[in-house]
C-alpha cells in the first residue's frame, strides 16, 4: 500500500465517520438521560429524505438541512411522548420509528418525485460544497503535515467540521455544565434528580430533542453531502453502527469520536479493497462490513473491558404517589 492510498483511505474515513459521529453523539445524549434509542437509524433516514427533497425544491442545502432536522425532531418527539409521557417500551418505540421512516420515505418519495423512491440528483448549492481550510494550498508540499492537513483534513463539507466541533461541545455540556450534570444524573438515578426539585420529564425531553437535532444533521449530511440525493434505505444500518460505536465508546464523547473513526475506517477500507489480502488469509468484503457488529458483540460480552450502560436506561420513570 503506498502513501497515496493511505491518504485516500484516511480522507474517506473522515467522510464516512461523520454521519456515524452525529448519530453516535445523538444516542449519547438520549441514553445518558436514560432513554434508550434504537431509532437512530430511522431518524437518519427520515432526515436524509426530507433534507434532499427540500434541498431539491429550494436549491439550498441549508434549507434542506433545516427541514431534515425538523423531521428528525418530530420523530424524536414521538419517541419522547411514547417513552416519557406514556411510559411505553423504549425499545419497541425505536423499532416502530425505524420502520415508519423506512416506509414513509419511500411512499412520499414515490408520490412527490415518481422515481422509484428516490429524489432527483442534487447539484450546485443544493449540496454542501467542499470547504478548503486556510493555507491548505500553501502547506501542500510540506512533508507529513502537508498530506495530513491539505489532503485529509481539508476539503470536506462544512458539516464534517461541525461534527468534529460537536465532540468537545458535547464533552463540555455533559461534564462542565449544570445541564450536563443533571442530564447524567437523570440517566443514573432519576428519583434523586426529582427529589432535588428538577423535572425528570423536562430533562429527558430536552435530551431526546437534542438527539433528534444531531440525527437530523447526520441524515442531511448523508443525502446532501456524502451523496447527491436520497435513495431508498440509504442510511444502510449506520444508525445501528452508531449504536455499536456508542457501546464501544462506553457512552463517552471523545471515545465516541475514536469509535466512529475506527468504524469509518473499516468502511473506507472495505470500499477501497472489496476483498482484503493480508498475505495469510484473504478477508472478504462481507467480513469487513460485519466487523463493527462483531467487535460490538465482543465488547458487550465483556471480553475487552466492560460496557456498563447508564443505570436507569430503558426504565420509564414514575413519580411515587
Amino acid at each position: 500500500m503506498d502513501l497515496a492510498t493511505i491518504v485516500q483511505i484516511l480522507d474517506s474515513t473522515l467522510r464516512l465517520a461523520t454521519p456515524l459521529l452525529f448519530a453516535c453523539l445523538a444516542g449519547l445524549f438520549s441514553e445518558r438521560a436514560g432513554i434508550f434509542d434504537i431509532g437512530l437509524e430511522g431518524k437518519l433516514l427520515i432526515s436524509a429524505f426530507f433534507s434532499a427533497a427540500y434541498a431539491h425544491y429550494t436549491g439550498s442545502a441549508w434549507a434542506g438541512l433545516g427541514v431534515g432536522v425538523l423531521a428528525a425532531v418530530v420523530f424524536s418527539a414521538i419517541h419522547g411522548i411514547a417513552s416519557i409521557t406514556f411510559r411505553g417500551n423504549q425499545l419497541i418505540s425505536g423499532v416502530a420509528l425505524n420502520f415508519l421512516a423506512a416506509g414513509v420515505t419511500v411512499v412520499v418519495a414515490q408520490s412527490w418525485f415518481s422515481q422509484g423512491g428516490r429524489t432527483p440528483p442534487l447539484a450546485g448549492d443544493a449540496r454542501f460544497q467542499r470547504l478548503d481550510l486556510p493555507f491548505a494550498e500553501a502547506l501542500r508540499d510540506v512533508p507529513v503535515l502537508g498530506p495530513v492537513y491539505s489532503q485529509i483534513l481539508s476539503g470536506h463539507s462544512i458539516l464534517v467540521y461541525l461534527g468534529l466541533l460537536t465532540v468537545p461541545a458535547t464533552w463540555w455540556l455533559l461534564y462542565r455544565s449544570r445541564f450536563g450534570l443533571r442530564l447524567r444524573a437523570v440517566g443514573e438515578n432519576p428519583a434523586a434528580v426529582d427529589t432535588a426539585g428538577v423535572s425528570v420529564v423536562r430533562l429527558r425531553f430536552m435530551a431526546v430533542i437534542i438527539c433528534g437535532v444531531l440525527c437530523g444533521i447526520g441524515g442531511a449530511y448523508l443525502a446532501t453531502s456524502l451523496s447527491a440525493g436520497f435513495v431508498k434505505d440509504m442510511s444502510a444500518g449506520r444508525g445501528f453502527i452508531a449504536l455499536a460505536a456508542l457501546i464501544f465508546a462506553k457512552w463517552r464523547p471523545w471515545h465516541a469520536l475514536g469509535a466512529v473513526l475506527l468504524f469509518g475506517m473499516l468502511e473506507a477500507i472495505a470500499n477501497r479493497f472489496p476483498s482484503l489480502n493480508l498475505g495469510i488469509v484473504t478477508l472478504p468484503g462481507q467480513f469487513m462490513s460485519a466487523l463493527p457488529y462483531i467487535l460490538t458483540v465482543v465488547i458487550l460480552a465483556g471480553f475487552v473491558g466492560r460496557a456498563t450502560p447508564p443505570r436507569a436506561g430503558g426504565e420509564p420513570y414514575a413519580k411515587e404517589r
Partner: peptide, 20 residues
C-alpha cells in the same frame, strides 16, 4: 412500502403507546 408504514404504526400503537 405502504405496508411497512402500517406495520410501524401497529407496533407503535400496540407496543409503545399502549398506555395511551
Amino acid at each position: 412500502e405502504m405496508i411497512i408504514i402500517i406495520q410501524a404504526l401497529v407496533i407503535l400503537f400496540t407496543g409503545a403507546l399502549d398506555n395511551m
